[in-house]
Design a protein around this nucleic acid. Structure first.
Lengths: 258, 258
DNA sequence: CTTCTCTAGGTACAGCGTACGTAGAAGCGC
DNA sequence: GCGCTTCTACGTACGCTGTACCTAGAGAAG
């Protein structure tokens, strides 16, 4: 999503009417869904809620993948007309934001970190991986647009708290979190493609093997040749996580040779 | 999936026909575009090539974002009919594969690594970031589906060669590459969203500030409060890259306290 | 030459996000 | 109570997408 921003094109607002009372002012509504109140309290009671909508969308995404989540499908799952959804969710993008934050609500975070940074982050990574396995559509979404809903912020706050003992400054710890999340996302995505389909898998292996044999990629060929049996995914996760944590937790400026 | 899968439907030949000479066999074509020959050599000369198609698509993506890349747009840019594209690219997914590999062709890789692992990988990361800045649509694509075209394989081979002096085994070095690529992708994407739009940026800052003030996210608030001025992007990149390389290049099993 | 394969490209379809407009319910000021 | 206003629900419609299917005709193979 980051790429498709041709132009705001919205700013053709010379001046006039900043805020006369009782204005529709659709142009001034905040773009961020978290800044829009869920209800204003006038008119008839809404028949649905953001939570129920997100839950319906998540149900579809879990069962049939993210591509199956369309406004029509979600509305139908709620028993609502398609366009009614737009009273709750101004754009589909925002529906994805809601889904992401609803998934982030599944974290079980302790009130206070234990003080053992490595242990806390390992636990956090395991929870994250578990969520990603339960909701395979999440990693792709997180990589595309990191969420900033209330639950995502709770997660961020916990990460910052858990890493406080390192003495690193806030900015560095935020970078560390991005690195950490990125790793877990990538691992989960790799797991998914690996589990995708035997036929496709075989085709890929054949292609890579042929490429290795061609002589054009000697080091790749060697890596293939010396590769052991496929490791236990959880073991591989912990091993690489250990590496990532080392990078993340290292003191501010370290220097070590290769 | 009601009915919309007419299957081969080529029909009407229930009998065997495993391999009479010169059969269409559309069902057995490989899914991977790299396994399909570009031309078979019969019939009239094709008016285009995979390279020219990829170049046209990249031109659109660079100028207007990945969302603007549709089969119709690319065909029009080539002066071809929409459906003619499908003679070269069986699915749009494959067009994206071609684009990705064409971008990967922009790497300028030395015949042999220098032997200084850190220096080689730093140079590689800088080239990668430069490509991502030239083609802002690439990171999202790479994160979604790592490419395995000829140029991507050349890149992989170079990474393996450059990291050979570490003594790590092939599998670990492949994991290291994934980590490395993931970091650069994420950094490039972060840069893009940061550069996206001032209005959106201000809204986000306001929201995060308010969230921090709310008292629900004390550590986030503290990180905000102690945050310095926004750093030079290139400096930040090198600093975090240094961290990532430390993780990537560390010997197989290390153990260090928090 | 015939034959057969391949390419170019038009037409058509199902599905998408969503702009717009209408009908009616529910809260507020009088 | 009344009416005004503001909200919700939802049908219709538009422009766009990927692509299945089909017809012509070009050009190599026999």
């Amino acid at each position: 999503m980051p790429s498709s921003k041709p132009a705001p094109s919205d700013d053709a607002e010379p001046s006039s009417k900043p805020a006369p009372p009782g204005r529709p002012t659709p142009a001034e509504a905040p773009e961020l869904i978290w800044l829009r109140p869920e209800r204003t309290g006038r008119g008839p009671r809404p028949a649905h809620s953001r939570d129920s909508i997100a839950a319906a969308a998540i149900g579809i995404a879990d069962a049939e993948g993210l591509d199956a989540v369309s406004m029509r499908r979600v509305a139908a799952a709620l028993g609502a007309g398609t366009m009614s959804l737009y009273n709750y969710v101004p754009k589909k993008e925002h529906l994805l934001d809601l889904m992401l934050d609803a998934a982030a609500a599944e974290y079980r975070l302790p009130a206070e970190p234990s003080g053992d940074v490595r242990a806390d982050l390992t636990e956090l990574a395991h929870q994250q991986l578990a969520i990603f396995r339960r909701h395979p559509w999440v990693p792709a979404l997180v990589l595309a647009r990191p969420g900033i809903g209330p639950n995502a912020l709770r997660y961020t706050d916990h990460f910052l708290a858990a890493t406080a003992p390192t003495g690193l400054d806030g900015g560095t710890r935020m970078e560390a979190m991005a690195l950490f999340n990125g790793f877990v996302c990538q691992f989960a995505q790799y797991e998914q493609t690996a589990a995708a389909g035997a036929k496709w898998q075989a085709e890929l292996a054949g292609y890579l093997g042929r490429a290795a044999m061609s002589g054009d990629y000697p080091h790749l060929a060697q890596a293939f040749a010396t590769a052991g049996p496929p490791a236990d995914p959880d073991k591989a996760f912990d091993r690489t996580l250990h590496r990532v944590l080392s990078a993340v937790l290292a003191p501010a400026e370290e220097d070590r040779g290769p």
